[in-house]
């Protein structure tokens, strides 16, 4: 087996901001005093005049971004996902989402793997919260190349976008230069026995789980959904039709995230044997990544086990 290349989404984030800004003078970056964590510092060094330090004041930052957007700028808000989504939630709602202003919200350090900072800095409910917000597009790319492509698409989109990013290096899945279409899922593996649906960097773990299942002689289908909203419902329905059993797995609470979105779609369009796997309605804790993934049941082995449990269930 070849060892996959590891790429940190935050590095790609910083570099892509520079690239986008080189091509588009409207782009500005607003930072909540975390640029050396989020890697917005790469941008700050390349474009100091377009890097707006906003201090540790996220509510104001969201409002400033809205004001800038009304003048035709395309502001990118950069801070940790935990704060980008919840610390300024009402501001995002009233001055960004309601007027549908062209603001990009980059949530760094999403999920549980936040570098030994624990539950205050982890973001287990950001997809659910942002997905419920009218006008908001919600993206969670799987790896470095897809982060780049998603940012290009997000920047080109004329309204608010929430971009869910991870801190630590994760396995490369896609080649550079892939096309990213907002609202389109990607089938990573064809199979007939069970469909596994995943998003974000967790897709790499789901892909490994598929390998484990295949080693057991099963034929899993794997659908990656880098856009959680608008959901690629057709792709979800197709996955259900192909396999008759769907496992959704995500590094996010099982309530209201990707699993919720898939359940809503299948429940209405094609009721299917379904299992939702993720963080089980709990907050996290600090610790090494491996230990966190093991304790919260998010390793490839856990995903494969969930798949077997689902396959053991009688089909309706």
């Amino acid at each position: 087996m070849t060892v996959p290349t590891m790429i940190a989404q935050r590095e790609v984030f910083g570099r892509t901001l520079v690239e986008l800004a080189d091509a588009d003078p409207r782009l500005l970056v607003l930072d909540g005093d975390l640029a050396n964590s989020t890697k917005a510092d790469i941008f700050a060094e390349a474009h100091p005049d377009r890097f707006l330090a906003m201090g540790i004041a996220e509510q104001n930052m969201a409002g400033v971004a809205a004001g800038l957007a009304t003048l035709g700028f395309v502001p990118w808000i950069s801070t940790f996902a935990a704060f980008a989504v919840k610390r300024d939630l009402d501001q995002v709602r009233v001055v960004i989402a309601q007027p549908s202003l062209n603001v990009k919200i980059a949530g760094a350090y999403s999920g549980l793997l936040t570098g030994f900072t624990g539950k205050t800095h982890q973001s287990v409910e950001d997809i659910a919260v942002m997905r419920a917000m009218p006008n908001m597009v919600v993206l969670a790319p799987a790896d470095g190349p897809e982060t780049h492509a998603a940012m290009v698409a997000a920047h080109a989109h004329g309204g608010p976008v929430y971009l869910r990013l991870a801190r630590d290096p994760s396995p490369r899945i896609f080649d550079d230069g892939l096309a990213f279409v907002i609202g389109r899922g990607i089938v990573l593996r064809e199979g007939r026995d069970i469909a596994i649906i995943s998003t974000g960097v967790h897709t790499a773990r789901a892909a490994e789980a598929c390998d484990l299942l295949a080693a057991d002689g099963l034929r899993p289908y794997h659908l990656h959904l880098p856009t959680i909203k608008p959901l690629d419902e057709d792709a979800v329905v197709r996955a259900a039709e192909r396999t008759g059993a769907v496992l959704v797995t995500e590094e996010h609470t099982v309530i209201g995230g990707l699993g919720g979105a898939v359940a809503e779609a299948l429940g209405q369009r094609r009721p299917t044997l379904l299992r939702l796997h993720g963080i089980r309605d709990v907050f996290g804790e600090s610790g090494p990544n491996d230990a966190i993934l093991a304790k919260y049941g998010l390793t490839p082995r856990h995903i494969a086990e969930e798949a077997r449990l689902l396959l053991g269930q009688p089909r309706p």
Partner: peptide, 21 residues
């Protein structure tokens, strides 16, 4: 020029407009 109604939010977009100007 800006949607408001949730109190305390209007000055920040004003700051954004002033920076943008």
């Amino acid at each position: 020029d800006m949607s408001t109604g949730s109190l305390g939010q209007g000055l920040s977009p004003g700051v954004g407009m002033a920076i943008g100007a």
